[in-house]
Design a protein around this nucleic acid. Structure first.
Lengths: 307, 307
DNA sequence: CACATCCATGTAGCGATGCTACATCGTCAG
DNA sequence: CTGACGATGTAGCATCGCTACATGGATGTG
């Protein structure tokens, strides 16, 4: 039972195709196929079977892949213990962020992490419309994701979920709006408004549905954007109101005001998703620690200005 | 961090010399030395340093070796899960036994294990005078050992200790002896006797010292043997009395009787020692299960005849 | 004190292993 | 039916880990 081959099987379980594993590991599909064949011979039972054009794991294959994941964790832990022993988090940590938190928190995080010698963070942002957060953990060490509280769609896959911040979603209004003087808003205030929504399927939608339920009628959604900059610009220009995350929007222009929503729970949960084996690495844990700390600062500071 | 190299470091931590590791793993010392050198380069810190003719692990090396042991466990567990999945304990289990238990229990154990297809047990006995039980776990999957209750000299090394049997040590007398009619014996009965002892350093000695303390004088030890057959023959021939393990002596001739000792705790603890990584293997666990079961039978049945 | 011995390590060379490049075969879509 | 895609076979090549042999330092002995 060679470890490298087991790891290949683990990748196959995650990615689902020989070609994808080959790309991810920098090999040709032929090489992957050969190694899996050897593993199958060693194991003494078929691990994959053809399914249309591709292959799927047999139940035996799935069982072995689970063990392979445990081995990967133990191996990563050995690395981590070693890093810790040398007190030197080594290597590169890749991080995927969605835009809002990327703009607000990441600069401070990376600044702090510059002081750790030998630690390199490679951050990338991504279009949240494509967000299949869980699958992205196969390609990035840390994936920053957001969801509604209570909904953790990625809990089941054995991912480690590190909560960073529970961020209230306020209502963004132009400073000239009739509701701009209020200390807070309710559902009935808002059902009359024209809204700037998010693309269908985004988590924010649920809150809008809750507002519709409480307000007793459907709201009008004029435009749908995922980019907050665009949304803010449209609010300022008077095209509607929208949810604006309280802490992670950065400094807002004076023409735009945020008002908390009452009566409808409106918040998003910001978490870091990590595969359990990469979570063992000291370098990764170091980055996670700073993320948690900075998020806490943001929550404390932001709560003061927002209330 | 290659696993094979880590495993070599683990072996080095256990065996203490490159040559020993080479012999144990079927390689030349040169090969081992080269691989350790590569590992050292990968790790980025010296793992060994010269000490006289040989080498010793640095503290860094010890730390890494500990992690290597954890990796070995995870890997063995993967094997075990796989074996269990196929419901087929595979491979060979090597077992080291001391003579008494080897004669009494092992035949029944191996008979039962013959019914498990694909499982091969290779048993060896060894001269208990050489007994450094713990070190022998490096070369054998299961090492049967005995010690006095409360004394577990091998607890500290991270070995798994599976208790099999607490076996009373009775006093063996010739059937013609003046004490042969008693239902039990005490220390004061025995300090007058001529004894057949064990070689110096054997665990039984402690009990003899306790008898001397309670009896108020030193006993005379005429001969010292480790082989129970010889001891039994000498008892029969009237050369003295001796400790005889109650259950594991097999069928005794009628010229020899066993009498329990009162007032002095006299028992030995029979255990199986297993390295934690090999303890994960299903094949090994299967053998252990049968050992435990047969030992329990022996204890139950033997207690009936002995009391 | 020289010598033999033991242990680790360095060097050259060989064989196994794992990869790439390319070809093939089956499956699905237009 | 044809083109694209995905898995898998084959040949060849580079790398890696091993052996055989030589070297050098430390130890204990005649």
């Amino acid at each position: 039972m060679d470890v490298r081959r087991l790891d290949l099987l683990r990748e196959l379980a995650e990615r689902g195709s020989v070609t994808a594993v080959a790309e991810a590991t920098g090999r040709t599909p032929s090489a992957v196929s050969q190694q899996l064949k050897v593993l199958e011979r060693e194991a003494g039972a078929p691990l994959t079977e053809r399914s249309g054009r591709g292959i799927v794991l047999t139940s035996a294959g799935q069982a072995l892949a689970r063990s392979a994941a445990d081995v990967a964790i133990a191996l990563a832990r050995a690395d981590a213990v070693w890093d810790e022993f040398r007190n030197d988090p080594s290597g590169e940590v890749t991080l995927l962020t969605f835009p809002t938190i990327g703009a607000t928190m990441l600069p401070a995080v990376l600044t702090e992490l510059q002081q750790v010698p030998g630690l390199v963070v490679r951050a990338t942002d991504f279009d949240p419309e494509l967000a299949e957060f869980a699958e992205l953990t196969a390609d990035y060490d840390i994936v920053l994701a957001h969801t509604m509280p209570g909904v953790l769609p990625w809990g089941g896959r054995g991912l480690r979920v590190v909560p960073l911040l529970t961020e209230p979603l306020d209502i963004g209004l132009p400073a000239t709006h009739r509701l701009a003087g209020r200390s807070h808003l309710t559902a009935s205030d808002l059902v009359e408004e024209t809204w700037l929504g998010v693309p269908p399927g985004f988590p924010f939608e649920r809150i809008l549905h809750a507002i519709e339920q409480q307000g007793g009628r459907r709201v009008e959604i004029a435009q749908r954007f995922s980019d907050m900059r665009i949304v803010e610009a449209f609010i300022q220009a008077g095209f509607g109101v929208a949810f604006v995350p309280r802490y992670t929007s950065g400094s807002l222009p004076p023409e735009l005001v945020l008002k908390p929503l009452r009566g409808v729970p409106s918040a998003r949960q910001i978490v870091a998703l990590v595969r359990p084996d990469v979570a063992e690495r000291l370098a990764v844990r170091t980055v996670l620690d700073v993320l948690v700390a900075k998020a806490a600062e943001l929550g404390a500071g932001g709560a003061g200005t927002g209330a």
